[in-house]
Simulated scan of single mutants.
Amino acid sequence: MKKGKLIVVTGPSGVGKGTLVRSLLERHRDLYLSVSATTRAPRRGEIDGKHYYFVSRPQFQEMIAANELLEWAEFAGNLYGTPRRPVEAQIDQGRWVLLEIELVGARQIRANFPEALRLFILPPSMSELERRLRNRSSDSATAIALRLDRATEEIAAASEFDFQVINDDLETALKNIEAVLFARCP
């Protein structure tokens, strides 16, 4: 059996990573999306085990100590990480696993899984990124300002990744990602 592939998707908050990943999963049913663990409270409509594994901070810290996470990071006061076993099981079964993660975690993956394909999603501009964050209507003005500051730092790291894709138009961005995946990972 052919071994699977680990594909990391990252970029600043509001760039459209989630939308792109959901669209890829709809188009390519053979892809597997890793479910992250987090210490944050569930948002309305989120289901434990589907959107995230919601765990307490002590449980998360136990997972770190037991080396049960491929990567982890703290973001906005909460811990996020990728449980190791489900990802490794899918790769061993020959599946391609998508990780939608933050920059800190993506850097950890680079160190631990250098064979992973790493994609960085860029906004067409900072003003467009700000517009998208404001249109979400889920963050305060202070939180948006913090996300934009962090985005500037994250975008500066885009060259660390194997490929960069600008998410200006959803369909174009999807086609560019598919070209990278299916040309690079036969």
Rank of each mutant, 00 (worst) to 15 (best):
M1S: 15
G4A: 05
K5D: 15
T10E: 02
S13W: 08
G14N: 08
V15Q: 10
V15A: 15
G18L: 13
L20E: 02
R22W: 00
L24R: 11
E26N: 11
H28D: 10
D30A: 14
L31G: 09
A37W: 01
A37C: 09
T39Y: 05
T39H: 08
P42A: 03
G45F: 01
I47K: 03
H51A: 06
S56L: 06
S56F: 06
P58Y: 07
Q59T: 12
Q59E: 13
Q61R: 11
E62P: 12
E62H: 14
I64A: 01
A65W: 11
A66S: 13
N67V: 05
E68C: 14
E68T: 12
A73W: 00
A76R: 06
N78R: 03
T82K: 01
Q93F: 00
Q93I: 00
G94A: 04
V97Q: 02
L99W: 01
E100L: 05
E100I: 07
E102W: 04
L103K: 14
L103A: 07
G105V: 04
R107F: 05
I109V: 15
R110H: 11
A111F: 00
N112T: 09
F113H: 09
E115A: 05
L119P: 00
P123F: 10
S125C: 10
R131Y: 09
L133V: 01
L133Q: 05
R134V: 05
S137T: 07
S140I: 02
T142V: 10
A143F: 07
A143T: 07
A143I: 10
A143R: 09
A143Q: 09
L146Y: 00
R147M: 06
R147P: 11
L148S: 06
D149W: 11
E154A: 14
E154F: 11
A157G: 06
A157Q: 15
A158W: 14
D162R: 09
Q164I: 08
V165L: 09
I166V: 10
I166G: 05
N167F: 03
D169N: 12
L170H: 14
T172Q: 13
A173M: 07
I177M: 13
I177A: 09
V180C: 13
A183V: 06
A183S: 12
R184E: 13
P186Y: 09
